[in-house]
């Protein structure tokens, strides 16, 4: 490779160049937070919907933890030591609630605003760009997921299902998980053509909810299914939550964190770029 040594023609450093290639100028107006403000304004009146969503995992916990807990004395925890069934299932439900809250907001709600309310068209007539919209919507979805998670952690604490101060980190972890699911959900939504396509979201979320070691340890599955399960994002979220709430912590957890950081970043950029190409033709 040859290099031109023309000082007047000095371009920006390579890292900045890469950022601008991924996020071209004009995509971002630096006002994503006003979109969160809008969502807060809208939900001020629909706050009961928000609160309602928090009850779902709590009901699951009560029914499964108390019901199943009668038959299953204990389950092998992350480090092999036995834990109560409720303590096993609760962190998984925590992860699942972060996922559900985020996915719901980033798919159904975003699709409606994008396709029918034409809300984003109105926003793009202002200095805001597609990246502001993607970031603003994802931020709201993750705040909602985080809200559910915080409530659920409180319930876990009250039920004596938290075994370690590491559990404090479960909240930021839940936010990261919600961020990743919201970003991927929103990116997927930009590819949806009609409401029928949302069956695919259910098709992805429900099996993940049932099989990603939410209710049973990985060892109960046949070998091939175990492999598939370890690829799913919810599995990584559950591993993270279980380790933190049961106090079984290791460096390996950073791998899960990295997994979600990558999903979050890729999802956000894809969502922004797709919105840009769909709305700014």
């Amino acid at each position: 490779m040859t290099r031109t040594l023309d000082p007047a023609n000095k371009t920006a450093p390579a890292s900045v160049g890469l950022v601008w290639r991924v996020i071209p100028p004009g995509l971002y107006g630096g006002r994503a937070s006003t979109l969160v403000e809008r969502s807060a304004l809208v939900n001020r009146r629909g706050w009961f919907v928000l609160v309602g969503g928090a009850f779902e995992p709590i009901l699951f916990l009560w029914s499964l933890g108390l019901g199943f807990g009668q038959f299953v004395a204990s389950v092998a925890g992350p480090d092999g030591r036995p834990v109560s069934y409720a303590a096993f299932v609760a962190p998984a439900l925590l992860a699942a609630s972060a996922m559900n809250g985020a996915v719901y907001d980033a798919t159904f709600n975003v699709f409606f605003k994008f396709k029918y309310a034409k809300l984003y068209d109105a926003m793009l007539a202002t200095p805001m760009g597609p990246l502001d919209i993607a970031m603003g919507e994802i931020a709201w979805a993750l705040l909602r997921g985080g809200l559910y998670s915080a409530g659920f952690l409180g319930v876990m604490l009250a039920m004596g299902l938290i075994a370690s101060p590491w559990a404090l980190l479960a909240l930021p972890a839940a936010l990261l998980v919600a961020f990743a699911f919201a970003a991927v959900g929103m990116a997927a939504t930009t590819f949806m053509r009609s409401w029928q396509d949302f069956d695919l979201v259910q098709l992805a979320v429900l099996p993940m909810f049932l099989f990603s070691t939410t209710f049973f340890p990985l060892s109960v599955y046949p070998g091939w299914l175990q492999t598939v399960v370890t690829w799913t994002p919810l599995y990584h979220a559950i591993e993270l939550m279980r380790g933190l709430t049961l106090g079984v912590v290791g460096w390996g957890m950073l791998g899960h964190v990295a997994y979600f950081a990558v999903l979050a970043a890729v999802g956000t950029v894809v969502a922004a770029r797709r919105l840009g190409s769909l709305l700014l033709d």
């Binding site: 006002r31 006003t34 304004l41 809208v42 309310a117 034409k118 809300l119 109105a122 926003m123 200095p127």
Partner: peptide
């Protein structure tokens, strides 16, 4: 085609739009 924010009131529509402009 009007693309007003149907989830907000008349006044809020104007206020939040101003916020989009910073």
């Amino acid at each position: 085609l009007d693309n007003l924010d149907l989830e907000l009131t008349v006044r809020q529509n104007l206020q939040i739009y101003g916020r989009y402009f910073g």
